[in-house]
Every structure is written in C-alpha cells, then in structure tokens.
C-alpha cells in the first residue's frame, strides 16, 4: 500500500478525543475524499498526516516510509507531503513565482524557473507569474496554491476544503480542473470536504467520518 494509516488516535485533551481508531490505506495515484460534517475531525486527520500534529497513538506510512509510530516522528518539513489550505495561505508578500518556488529551494536557479513555469503551464496561468496574491481572483489563488504544493513533487497531496471559498459557478469549473490535474500528475491525494458532490466528482473513494470515527467507505465508479 502506498499510504497506510493504522489505528490512529488523537486528542487535544484526554477527555475530548478528536479521532478514534482511524485506519485506511491508499494505492499510488488514488484520490480519497474524507467526507464529514464540521467538527467530525476531518481537518485534524490531514494535520496528522502532514505532521502538524502528533497523534496520541497509531501509525502513518507513506511510500514505504514510516512518518510516525510509537517510536518515530518525522517533522513536517522533512515529510514529502504537500498541502493546500482552506484559505490557500499564499504568502501575501511574495509574488506567484516566489510563492511556487518557496518549496523547491534545492533546485538551481534555472531549474527552479523551469519547474515554476511547468507548474504554471499545468494550471494554465503562465501570464500571472509576477502577480501578487491580492491581484488574483479566488479561483486563481486556489490554482496557485495547488501549483505551490505540487512543485516539490510530494508523495501525497492533502487538500483541506479546497472549494469552500469559491462561488457555485467557479466551484464546478475548478472541480473539473482539479480532477484533471490530479490525473495528469498521477498524484496520490487526500481531500477533505463536507460536500458529497465535491467528493463524488473528484475522488476514487469516499471515507465517511463521524465524531472522529470512520463509519463507512464508498468506491466511486468512473462515469
């Protein structure tokens, strides 16, 4: 299995567990949607996979590497995990080029530029290379955030409610774009949503989360 999550528990305080005994696995290139209402623990699950929180118990493996278990914890900056935040969190003081290049610091200057252009081509936004985040629309910001997360070629991509800030028309368009980018890059991805239509359109499989527990899984048949 490419991603393997086993018996994962998490609590901010002992009395209030947020996630209980979460286990699921993913194939390489698979897109899994975590569907649940607010407070179900779905964003926390992403924070655990990314390394922003430490689980109280359980194991996370990605691409045959143990990210955490009872004895190991790899810091978030050392994991090959990309994440697109709900509000995109584009650095407001950096232009598009610098935002995307931020995560690929080990590349040479030329290779960095090539990679940024490649990413911008992928999302069809080459002309915005020197624009600042405040000069972009919500949809454009979302695509740049995606390009930034994809640029370092992560093993797995995490998306936290990626459509929550978009209006209905734009949401449909971006949903299809996102789906095609995922498939084009053959990216393994986990995305969190509270909207069944988002999950159905993008994911290969839906994991239903309720009160911190997985209650159901559903495989989506391609149209």
């Amino acid at each position: 299995m490419y991603v393997n999550i086993e018996s994962l528990d998490f609590a901010y305080t002992k009395r209030n567990p947020v996630l209980k005994n979460i286990s699921f696995s993913m194939e390489e290139g698979e897109v899994v949607a975590i569907l649940g209402s607010s407070g179900s623990g779905k964003s926390t699950l992403l924070r655990l996979v990314s390394g922003l929180e430490i689980p109280t118990k359980g194991k996370i493996e990605v691409n045959a590497e143990t990210l955490c278990n009872a004895n190991t914890f790899i810091e978030c900056e050392k994991r090959q995990v990309g994440m697109v935040f709900q509000d995109y969190a584009l650095f407001p003081h950096m232009n598009v080029f610098k935002n995307i290049a931020f995560g690929i610091k080990n590349y040479s200057k030329e290779a960095k530029k090539q990679r940024v252009l490649e990413m911008l081509k992928l999302i069809n936004m080459e002309e915005k290379i020197y624009a600042y985040p405040h000069e972009l629309s919500g949809g454009q910001q979302q695509r740049i955030a995606l390009a930034r997360a994809l640029a370092p070629s992560p093993d797995v991509l995490l998306l936290d409610e990626p459509f929550s800030n978009l209006d209905a028309d734009l949401k449909l368009k971006i949903r299809h774009e996102l789906r095609s980018i995922m498939k084009m890059t053959d990216m393994t991805a986990i995305f969190v949503t509270h909207d069944y239509d988002d999950a159905k359109d993008i994911a290969d499989r839906i994991v239903y989360l309720e009160n911190g527990r997985i209650v159901h899984e559903e495989t989506i048949k391609p149209d």
């Binding site: 990314s50 390394g51 922003l52 810091e75 978030c76 900056e77 050392k78 994991r79 995990v81 990309g82 994440m83 935040f85 709900q86 509000d87 969190a89 650095f91 407001p92 003081h93 931020f102 995560g103 610091k105 930034r148 997360a149 370092p152």
Partner: peptide, 24 residues
C-alpha cells in the same frame, strides 16, 4: 496557516521565521 505552510514546503524554523513570519 502561513508558518505551517512554509514548514510543509520544507522550510526549517529559521527560514520560516526569516522568510514568512518576519516579512508578514
């Protein structure tokens, strides 16, 4: 979200502070 994002993009604590927290 900004500093978490920077760290997920591979920046250590010093780089996150110098490139993201401080400029903001």
């Amino acid at each position: 979200a900004f500093s978490e994002n920077a760290r997920l993009l591979g920046a250590n604590k010093i780089r996150t502070f110098m490139r993201v927290v401080l400029p903001l």
